[in-house]
């Protein structure tokens, strides 16, 4: 090696370095997805089969009554898919990175561990939209159902809804840093997401304060009734933003505290 290997200035502030980090994480995630296509396809297929069982089973049992709620089920499943991808991308990834021995390398980035995890979260949201889109399309083709997919409405409402789940993901990622083997808890939370997505916020308004619940209601209305973003009441959108920002902030705080505690206990890179 010659001069080319000598240390070079490191730039981590400003938009370009931040974008480079995002691009590097996205490239890595994408490479892992396409390098093992069977694994990726089987995950997608598993989600699709799960929906197909609900759809064909529901048709057989519920008949016409099932058809009335089909649109809401599709929207709910679409949101569930995106939520799972975004949430597990954080919570499970921390566990996997610790297993692989790469977690400490992420911590040692001059961008800061928080920013690296934020970049991972942002990439996870993009991937969750991609997976959600594929599943949504499959569901619509299978059922012959049509829904309003106005991106100007669906994208921001979808992203803000997922943001609250990301906050939960950060909390559990933080717990995984300290307590390690909590995969069973991760799975329980995934079931809880089903309940949150189906939460009856009209009947019990307080449920809007829970993650996913408000966003799920708005997304359902937007996709089944064609309501546009600007047609929602300001209070409804405000509540969505509040829960998104609130849960993200709580998640970031807990994650920060947990990573500090993991370093104090000397267990950051352990699994």
């Amino acid at each position: 090696m010659s001069d080319s290997t000598k240390s070079v200035p490191v730039v981590t502030s400003g938009f370009r370095p931040w974008f480079r980090l995002l691009a590097a994480i996205a490239r890595k995630q994408f490479t892992l997805l396409v390098r093992y296509p069977i694994n990726t396809i089987s995950q997608l297929f598993g989600l699709y089969v799960f929906f197909a069982l609900i759809f064909f089973g529901g048709q057989a049992v519920g008949g016409a009554a099932f058809g009335e709620s089909l649109a809401a089920i599709i929207v709910g499943f679409f949101l569930f898919t995106m939520t799972i991808v975004a949430y597990s991308g954080l919570a499970w990834d921390v566990t996997r990175e610790a297993q692989w021995g790469t977690l400490e390398q992420l911590f040692m980035s001059p961008f800061g561990f928080g920013r690296v995890m934020a970049a991972k979260a942002a990439v996870n949201v993009c991937f969750s939209l991609l997976w959600g889109g594929v599943i949504l399309l499959s569901m619509l083709v299978t059922t012959g159902q049509s829904l309003s997919v106005n991106l100007v409405t669906v994208l921001p409402v979808g992203v803000l809804t997922i943001a609250s789940a990301l906050g939960v993901g950060f909390v559990f990622a933080g717990l995984a840093l300290v307590y390690k083997r909590i995969e069973n808890l991760f799975q329980l939370i995934q079931f809880a997401f089903v309940a949150l997505i189906a939460a009856p916020v009209d009947a019990v308004p307080a449920l809007r304060l829970l993650p996913l619940a408000q966003g799920s209601a708005l997304l359902r209305e937007a996709m089944t009734q064609g309501t546009q973003l600007w047609e929602f009441q300001a209070f409804e959108v405000g509540m969505l933003v509040l829960t998104a920002v609130g849960y993200l902030a709580i998640g970031a705080y807990v994650f920060g505290r947990a990573s500090r505690r993991a370093r104090r206990l000397g267990v950051l890179g352990q699994y």
Binding site: A23, Y36, S109
Partner: peptide
Amino acid sequence: RLSVRENLDFFASLGG
């Protein structure tokens, strides 16, 4: 699961 070069790329980017 990444190639050697992909790893080097990633860690260089992680290093800013």
